[in-house]
Design a protein around this nucleic acid. Structure first.
Length: 425
RNA sequence: GGGGAGUUGCCGGAGCGGUCAAACGGGGCGGACUGUAAAUCCGUUGGCUUACGCCUACAGUGGUUCGAACCCACUACUCCCCA
């Protein structure tokens, strides 16, 4: 199996330039993809392109990532309605470092193989004057050619600034630069990048006569039509400080059955036979969610490491499984905090217990319920659990001894809504 | 400029003097089922010291009335028709 065949069966192949096989016939050749430097972390939406680079590396190409300081400033015209903010250099460097570390774990997960290179195109664009750019790059493209791109066409009605119109030339020049200095002959990206990629190929051919290639992956969508990569409207980040390993694990575990076949092929590095057998078992017994668990375990471990995976598994079992809630007492305060990161919390003083208030008061005062009426309704409907123990009477009076680790009360309203109350001494 | 219709809870939409915290549908939230899913079914859906009690709410203000979402007046906004 070669790279192309691998990407095809995995569903990572949308389109490529004719004769693409030529570009990896030379040993040590580079393959590049660009990433937006707007945040110090990638999110799962970036993961498709990360996987493209990963597979390139597995087949011996040198992976190059551009975390584009220069292109990020100009803004890819696809989608965005807001004016881009210019990022200052310090932020840029910090973002780049964060992204670099993540790519190291994912693309270069295997120590054997070509070294991963992460570059900032600000380094070569900063010195490039406008006049030089017009003469050296702009001269090679007709307006007609540039206008034909989908990214431009889609904006003709609503309007597109000269800045964003020029974006494709910047990205095209990146490809040329990498070709000249790093032996890069392939650019990969999402299907929306096709236009920008072909501009680069064109520029390389015109400036050097060299042959370079492009390959795109299809846009990843969810069966229910919602955008991939969000969990309850929030981005799922790769940075454990932003999205805890537990949340990350949960994201994959909750993938829909209709999506999991595609997701597993795209994001798992396991071999074809292993993946197909897992999917068969999953189809036979979908309620066991074999495929989701397999993918969640694999990705969490690759990105965050084994200890983090184990914490995520323990937390999952304690929160959703049969394990008693007390197993969480073993967790360090930091791990505890991570699992409940994003879980709404409230802080009360321990003297709260002196007043002998009931659960309805607790829910209302901690913000777990918006009003006492609603709290009462919840309890009467049988939807309240405290530290995983069902509370069926609104008159129940919580006592100090119920606190987990002497500090916490874990409130479940319904099955999925969690709330943590911290009692300060 | 003239004429008409309307403005109700998260949304749509009934109500046209008391029994209206307001039908019905959607959505939300709980429960059962289940897989931390989908579908389905059940419950619930203004607040309060849970009370056949009180408070706040049917665009705003004022009025008629024992009593107003409902009648009247004015104000604001929306839509339609004619110039």
């Amino acid at each position: 199996m070669n790279l192309l065949e691998e990407l095809k069966w995995r569903g990572l192949y949308q389109d490529s330039t004719p004769g693409i096989e030529n570009c990896w016939s030379v040993p040590g050749v580079g393959a590049y993809a660009g990433f937006d430097p707007t945040a110090p972390s990638l999110h799962v939406g970036n993961l498709v392109v990360v996987m493209l680079l990963t597979h390139c590396r597995r087949y011996g190409l040198r992976p190059i990532a551009i975390v584009g300081g220069a292109t990020g400033m100009v803004g890819d015209p696809s989608g965005k309605s807001q004016e881009r903010k210019l990022l200052d250099l310090d932020t840029l460097r910090a973002n780049q470092a964060g992204v670099h570390a993540q790519l190291e774990k994912l693309v270069a997960y295997d120590p054997d193989g070509p070294e991963l290179l992460v570059l900032n195109n600000y380094d070569w664009f900063a010195q490039f004057t406008f006049l030089d750019f017009l003469r050296d790059v702009g001269k090679h493209f007709s307006i007609n050619y540039m206008m034909a791109k989908d990214s431009v066409q889609n904006r003709l009605e609503s309007g597109i600034s000269f800045t964003e119109f020029s974006y494709q030339l910047l990205q095209g020049y990146d490809f040329y630069h990498l070709y000249q200095h790093y032996g890069c002959r392939l650019q990969v990206g999402g299907s929306d990048q096709w236009g920008n990629i072909t501009t680069g190929i064109e520029l390389v051919r015109k400036l050097t006569g060299g042959e370079v290639h492009g390959l795109t992956a299809p846009l990843l969508t969810r069966a229910d039509g919602s955008k991939f990569g969000k969990s309850e409207g929030e981005n799922v980040w790769l940075d454990p400080e932003r999205t805890s390993p537990y949340k990350f694990y949960q994201f994959w575990l909750n993938a829909a059955d209709e999506d999991i076949s595609r997701l597993l092929k795209i994001f798992s590095l396991k071999g074809r036979e292993e993946i197909e057998s897992a999917l068969e078992r999953h189809a036979a017994e979908p309620h066991l969610r074999i495929a989701q668990k397999m993918l969640a375990v694999e990705l969490t471990e690759r990105l965050h490491g084994k200890p983090a995976l184990e914490t995520a598994l323990a937390a999952t079992d304690a929160l959703f499984g049969d394990a008693p809630f007390s197993t969480l007492e073993r967790l360090s305060p930091k791990e505890f905090g991570q699992i409940f990161e994003g879980v709404p919390s409230a802080t009360l003083n321990r003297s709260w217990f002196e007043a002998q208030k009931n659960v309805v008061d607790l829910l209302a005062e901690s913000g777990a319920a918006p009003s006492k009426s609603e709290a009462r309704r919840l309890v009467q409907g049988g939807g309240l659990k405290i530290n995983k123990i069902k509370i069926s009477s609104p008159d129940h009076v919580p006592v100090f001894d119920e606190l987990l680790a002497g500090r916490y009360l874990f409130i479940q309203s319904g099955k999925k809504k969690h709330h943590i109350v911290v009692f300060e001494p």
